[in-house]
Design a protein around this nucleic acid. Structure first.
Length: 262
DNA sequence: TCTGCATGAAAAA
DNA sequence: TTTTCCTGCAGAG
């Protein structure tokens, strides 16, 4: 489930529950060297794109959920660790379990800086400069759909947001970055900011506007939440054309071939 | 029980 | 461009 909004949500949740407290850190699965931070006080938790940084003094746990990583937490006593729990936190405020991350490692401040330095602007961080992303896009021949997923260009956008944003702006996913004009980019960037903030609030990726969904009251159903993502062969919500899917940069890309024609 | 699949990214080639 | 790693779940048999 992890695109940038998931990590910012996780950071907020961990801040509220654990910052300022000593944490008993362990690795029931044994694949994380928990001794390096066990018993230390958690100073801060921050998210940059899809990366999470949990600072215990000058030892910083770097977490990247990858495709499968998940975090669960609760109050009271922690449950018996079922399955592969890479990192477990227990404090007086409750517990938190991390499973299946691509990265879970202790870094120094300079190593953290190096990771942040290679990321593009994060739409969920205050003061992020979308223009920095456009500087890269306008110099690239690569397809827009690939650039949006590239964390050096924009930090935090993943496979759902990229397809959905391209649809919302009726852009051909294969349009070369250099063919995009600045005005179009400004629209995309502000839309990404809006959508990801909504994702941060709700914990879900909902990109459809109410008028484009079937008229229903109540919560957005799963099948209504997206325009194109995972809708291969289903009719486009705007013009009814079957949605197309093609693998681009090792990930499935979805689009409407008529709404998003070149 | 087995298979395939998933909102990711790095290393190898 | 392909391979590899991370884990859990749904659906098929």
């Amino acid at each position: 489930m992890p695109e940038g909004h998931t990590l910012h949500r996780l950071a907020r949740s961990q801040r509220r529950q654990f910052v300022g407290l000593p944490i008993a850190v362990s690795s029931p699965q044994g694949r994380f060297d928990a001794m390096l931070v066990d018993g230390r006080v958690l100073d801060s938790v921050t998210a940059h794109g899809k990366h999470l940084f949990e600072a215990f003094g000058d030892r910083i746990v770097h977490v990247h959920l990858g495709l499968f990583g998940k975090y669960s937490s609760g109050t009271g006593d922690p449950p018996e660790p079922l399955g592969a729990v890479r990192m477990r936190w227990v404090a007086e405020s409750g517990w938190g379990d991390l499973r299946g991350p691509t990265a879970c490692e202790v870094l120094s401040p300079s190593e953290v800086d190096a990771i942040i330095a290679r990321l593009g602007p994060d739409p969920l961080r205050a003061g992020s400069d979308g223009g920095r992303a456009f500087d890269r896009i306008r110099r690239s021949r690569a397809p827009l759909a690939g650039l949006l997923m590239d964390q050096r260009v924009v930090a935090g956008v993943g496979n759902v947001y990229r397809s959905e944003v391209l649809f919302r702006h009726r852009l051909d996913p294969y349009l070369p970055g250099r063919a995009l004009d600045a005005t179009a980019w400004d629209g995309i960037w502000s839309d990404v900011v809006t959508l990801m903030r909504a994702g941060l609030r709700s914990g879900r990726i909902i990109t459809t506007d109410p008028t484009d969904r079937s008229r229903r009251t109540g919560p957005v159903r799963g099948e209504d939440a997206h325009y194109v993502y995972r809708r291969t062969g289903l009719p486009c919500r705007i013009d009814g054309t079957p949605i197309t899917m093609q693998v681009l940069a090792a990930r499935k890309l979805y689009w409407c071939p008529t709404c998003q024609a070149a």
